[in-house]
Design a protein around this nucleic acid. Sequence first.
DNA 1: TTGACATGCAAGTTTCTACTTGCCTATTCT
DNA 2: AGAATAGGCAAGTAGAAACTTGCATGTCAA
Lengths: 92, 92
Amino acid sequence: MGDVFHALADPTRRFILDELAERDGQSLFELCGRLTMRHGIGLSRQAVSQHLAVLEEAELVHSERVGRTKLHHLDTAPLCGLTDRWLPTLKE
Amino acid sequence: MGDVFHALADPTRRFILDELAERDGQSLFELCGRLTMRHGIGLSRQAVSQHLAVLEEAELVHSERVGRTKLHHLDTAPLCGLTDRWLPTLKE
DNA sequence: TTGACATGCAAGTTTCTACTTGCCTATTCT
DNA sequence: AGAATAGGCAAGTAGAAACTTGCATGTCAA
């Protein structure tokens, strides 16, 4: 669960989640391109790949291999109730 | 807003929030003691102080000086709607 | 005012994080 | 088969983060 917060702590990773929220199932190359075009983030392919690995570790992103590409899917489940721990209205 | 995620990314800081959620208005010394007693975290006073600074930066904790002590208060406001950005049910 | 207590400030160290570069593997197309 | 495409692996680097230690500041109580 700390993994989820750690994953969300980086702005680039939050942009990646934004991208997948808008268009699910993107490949690594697609994400690279769209991060550059739409968010002005000019990172190497490997940098983005490493960010995706962190997001997968946190289970915020799942991936499937399709031929020579790998499609990435957003999973918002780990976000639900993430902060309830400290919200007094939900204590009991 | 990235500050909030960054602040939450550290387990010690999450324990501090737990402590303040349970008993609001603790001093630095109280927090040090309770972190050690209840969570097994034996950190120096300065380490805890630095964690509190990070939490204050993120506005998750506010503090007031009272005589020679400083009391810390939890503020859950920054947590509200933190993850809505990616939750599809709230898109419009 | 002097001593004890609660905290702040400033270096300094070690560990982690983000990113890059270079090379390797696997799949598709011609 | 050979070239192009999509991605993976590994080592290296620069900067940030987490902690520590030592000293300074401010407050209270006798």
